[in-house]
Design a protein around this nucleic acid. Structure first.
Lengths: 210, 210
DNA sequence: GTCTATAATGTGATAGAC
DNA sequence: GTCTATCACATTATAGAC
């Protein structure tokens, strides 16, 4: 459904000019593999999905996939890179001290990205274990992982404890509002859901008593 | 750390009288296996943990574990049963219509359980994919899974949409406040953290504008 | 770029002795 | 209840033809 968006929305990649061979409609094979993997990883989990399944759904053989990715983990890394691409602009707001107001604007932008890249965020939420295992191995250049940056901000000792907890709660509220209900909010226009969650976040971050 | 609590707190089990053989301090082997599995599943994931690892940490062999559990999945099911045991009293509040107030009391009781059984809830949060796969196979008697009951309440069409979103957000806020920060709140007494999260939930569920 | 065939490994699980 | 030894299998990944 939203699969086509995700493929075309991914910024970089040689999707433009040098098409030849088995490509179709300007979508490179690499992106098609990532789209299928995103689907399968989301509802079967990374470990619960085999290369054979990915290949079968693409009407390819396994080695064809290994031509585009050196390993199964690299597919997961590429999907992680996709998320990081979308999240980094929101993450840029975390320079300097992170007040409740800054945090609120961050979550607002994050909400926009979640609406546009719903499945990508859902996949990350449901494969935390596999992703963390990946990050333990790939500690290259002390990667600025998105979750790590969040926790870093949450651990800032210069902030009042109450505020830090509210920040964590509001982040959880966003995830809960957007993903927890499963298909309970599927008939609801995503813009409306976004707005309702945004209101909840505002209530959480408003420092009324202080 | 909190491992001893989890072992002794588990209600049922023949831990009492008929000790003999290799047991120590009244903790049955079955419970010790579950404790180790809980640790490993929590920080490596269910699929990322092998029976060999579980056995090695217990200074046992694999077949010794298969004497107590018929499969690896059964270990996960047993841990799921543990959670269900602790959560069912809170879940009992969901009879009839679930107002915001009812939901608030439910989350309050759930918060107590999370403080007492922190690792158990964390493990569930981090192995959603494996647990869902398990539930697809084991659709015995249309199990009253805890998450399914939550989603059921969230999907109740007789409730205002705004309330349902607030319920989802508050549940997410609880998870976020208790688990999202990782070790950022570890020095904080759990009672104090619980209180701060509870306040956030209260703000989320207070129907001030309606 | 994609294929057929196969290697290499680790896994969950079992048989049977003690 | 626990062990040694082993099975059967699926998996990731590679070699080499086209």
């Amino acid at each position: 459904m939203a699969q086509a968006d995700a493929a075309t929305a991914a910024g970089s990649g040689p999707t433009g000019d040098d098409r030849h061979g088995g490509e179709q409609a300007g979508v490179s094979t690499r992106e098609r593999i990532l789209d299928v993997a995103l689907d399968l990883f989301t509802d079967q989990g990374f470990d619960g999905t085999s290369m054979r399944e990915i290949a079968e759904r693409l009407h390819m053989s396994k080695p064809a996939i290994y031509y585009h990715f050196t390993s199964k983990e690299e597919i997961l890394m590429a999907l992680h890179a996709r998320l990081h691409e979308f999240g980094k602009s929101a993450l840029a707001r975390l320079t300097g001290e992170s007040t409740l107001q800054v945090w609120g604007s961050l979550l607002s932008e994050l909400l926009d990205q979640m609406v546009a890249q719903r499945k990508l965020f859902l996949m990350h939420e449901r494969n935390q274990a596999a992703l963390e295992k990946l990050h333990r191995k790939d500690h290259s250049d002390e990667h600025d992982d998105i979750q790590q940056r969040f926790r870093q901000a949450l651990a800032d000792p210069s902030l009042p404890l109450r505020d830090r907890v509210r920040m964590a709660c509001s982040l959880g509220a966003v995830l809960g509002g957007m993903f927890m209900a499963g298909e309970a909010f599927d008939d609801l226009p995503s813009a409306e859901l976004r707005s309702l969650v945004q209101d909840a976040v505002r209530d959480l971050l408003a420092d009324q008593t202080r």
